[in-house]
């Protein structure tokens, strides 16, 4: 609203209508915009509603033509079969284990190197920085074949370590942590040194507690990336005991024997729901973190 448009206007018959319209605009903005926006919102969440409804449909509803939007006799049979026949319990546990380990590794190792690059002086600092940043944009695709050869020769492809180790420390985390730690005041570190604090203790006791916002952002991004990761676990996991949720779900959906939609949709709910709940609870911090890093 500019100051110009709020200038008092001379009274004439149309004034009341103009004032009312202005009041509506102040509280609602452009009222007509809500119609296309609501339509777009419905389109955006329709797949999720369909998924949720479908996961509770009995087999008879799933096959019905034309389809029904709401299950006639809601059932949890799909979820039951998912966990008994497809062993989604162990896949869920694998996904959680891998994502937690990868996240912990990135938080620790990236903040360590990020601090060294931001605040300590050592020979080769610039070379290390350029080397790590140079790989920031390199897609995982380029390294996956030799990585597979490497990991299978290290005898890691038969265990979850093969899913964890290659992702334990990535350049993005270093970038993020270094940027954030650079903004912390040097005086803090100098003061700690004068007080006789050892170098590694400065990192652990002073820097790390101060980087919580950046750690939270990195944690969210890393956890999500790992949870949704597909190509690498697909290549490395040798048998069902190492499948993560996306791998199990994808193989179940492409297999010839298994095309029962109700179970697949229930599987999609199990993959998506934990992440969605976390997102809805923490959406404010989440969105702020994404916006500041400018990256997914």
């Amino acid at each position: 609203m500019s100051t110009l448009s709020t200038r008092p206007t001379p009274h004439h018959p149309g004034t009341d209508r103009v004032l009312r319209r202005r009041r509506i605009r102040r509280t609602w903005g452009q009222p007509w915009l809500y119609i296309p926006l609501a339509g777009a919102l419905l389109l955006m969440i329709a797949p999720f509603l369909w998924m949720l409804s479908g996961s509770f449909k009995p087999e008879a509803d799933i096959r019905r033509v034309p389809p029904v939007l709401i299950p006639t006799a809601p059932t949890t049979a799909n979820y039951g079969e998912l966990f008994s026949r497809l062993d989604f319990t162990s896949m869920f546990a694998n996904s959680v284990t891998v994502a937690l380990a990868v996240t912990a590794g990135n938080l620790l190792f990236c903040s360590m190197l990020g601090y060294a690059l931001a605040k300590l002086e050592f020979r080769g600092q610039r070379a290390v920085f350029l080397l790590v940043m140079g790989t920031l944009m390199i897609p995982g695709l380029v390294t996956f074949v030799p990585l597979y050869v490497l990991v299978s020769n290290m005898q890691l492809s038969g265990s979850l370590f093969g899913l964890i180790l290659p992702f334990l420390a990535g350049p993005f985390g270093v970038f993020l942590m270094r940027q954030f730690i650079s903004t912390l005041p040097d005086e803090l570190i100098d003061a700690a040194r004068v007080d006789g604090c050892r170098e590694l203790a400065i990192y652990w006791k002073i820097i790390l507690p101060l980087t919580k916002p950046a750690l939270a952002t990195l944690g969210i991004i890393t956890f999500l990336g790992s949870w949704n990761n597909f190509l690498w676990p697909l290549v490395v996991a040798q048998n069902e005991s190492q499948y993560t949720l996306p791998v199990g779900l994808a193989l179940a959906s492409s297999g010839q024997s298994f095309t029962r939609f109700g179970i697949l949709l229930a599987g999609a709910v199990v993959v998506l729901l934990p992440v969605m709940v976390v997102f809805l609870v923490f959406q404010r911090q989440f969105v702020a973190g994404i916006a500041t890093t400018g990256l997914k």
């Binding site: 590794g105 060294a116 490497l150 334990l168 170098e199 590694l200």
Partner: peptide
């Protein structure tokens, strides 16, 4: 300081060299 820096950098660089630079 330099020693501390290399200690802090070592775990990342070891993983990075093995799983990124080498492949």
């Amino acid at each position: 300081q330099a020693r501390a820096a290399w200690i802090l950098a070592a775990p990342f660089l070891a993983l990075f060299a093995t799983f990124m630079l080498l492949p």
